[in-house]
């Protein structure tokens, strides 16, 4: 059996389990904008293939031309000397809160926790959350975990930095809060995790224009994917993260549709 076939079987098994346990209902989300139930179940009517049907504003999930995630392949890669070193600065200690929105574990960061500068625009970190397995693939390779550090500009533009994790040594970064993960069974209950330090940035990264990977799949998101010096996560930490959500929570990859993936250095 190929590894991709194995992955599909694993996903189906997990989904079968979540179906037996009863599909988690997020219609009670406190966030007013999100009244419609959606999930990652590819067999049901609320899964990624159906997100565009669930709300008129979500039609871009299907019709969009720059959807995320993507499978990053060599054919789309372009070395871009203009990218330079990533201009991101974060406070050494950031007071953060953690919650589970039923889809993912989300850590909220207070305003002015740092700044990411891309082409003259300053974005401030707002939150980070986790997907298991990874949403982005590199040359058809999936990773066990992906973290999205979401930044917003003053005028509401989004820039997300994606970190792909490889299984290995325990992550000191995740160790700061991985034993305090809220369960999907108690959605949107916020708790303080004290002061944390964000992940270090890499020397190498890639850049492309994409979208949110969850409804409403809004586009014009500037994506930065950290490359090569991948952070590691231990098997135990992966287990804790996976126990916090009822199912796998990765949106399938999209075609690049002619988009270039610019690589730094």
């Amino acid at each position: 059996m190929t590894s991709s076939a194995k992955a599909v079987v694993a996903v189906l098994l997990l989904q079968a389990v979540s179906l037996v346990l009863g599909c988690y209902d997020v219609s009670t989300d406190a966030v007013g904008a999100e009244q419609v139930h959606w999930d990652y179940n590819t067999d049901g009517h609320h899964g990624p293939a159906h997100w565009h049907e669930l709300k008129p504003e979500w039609s871009v999930c299907k019709t969009g031309m720059q959807q995320s995630p993507i499978n990053i392949v060599a054919a789309d890669m372009v070395k871009d000397d203009g990218l330079g070193k990533l201009d991101a600065r974060y406070k050494a200690k950031i007071n953060a809160t953690i919650a589970n929105d039923g889809h993912a574990v989300v850590v909220d960061l207070p305003p002015k926790s740092g700044a990411l500068k891309i082409k003259g625009v300053t974005y401030h970190p707002a939150q980070f959350h986790f997907h298991m397995p990874s949403e982005h693939h590199i040359m058809n390779q999936s990773f066990p975990l992906e973290m999205h550090l979401v930044h917003k500009s003053e005028d509401g533009k989004l820039a997300v930095v994606g970190f792909l994790f490889v299984e290995g040594e325990e992550s000191e970064f995740l160790a700061q809060f991985v034993d305090k993960l809220p369960s999907y069974k108690e959605p949107n209950v916020k708790s303080n995790i004290g002061k944390i330090r964000l992940l270090r940035q890499n020397r190498n990264y890639g850049r492309y224009m994409g979208s949110l990977t969850t409804p409403p799949c809004a586009e014009n998101v500037t994506w930065t994917v950290m490359l090569w010096n991948f952070p590691t996560v231990s098997a135990h930490q992966l287990k804790l993260l996976s126990d916090s959500v009822p199912h796998t929570n990765n949106r399938p990859t999209f075609s690049s549709k002619g988009r270039n993936f610019h690589t730094s250095i």
Binding site: A74, I138, M139, Q141, P144, V166, E167, W228, F230
Partner: peptide, 18 residues
Amino acid sequence: TNEVVEFLKFVGNDQTLA
């Protein structure tokens, strides 16, 4: 880039990236 990915796979015994 391809060689780097191939090496990551090699380290992961062709099962995963490591």
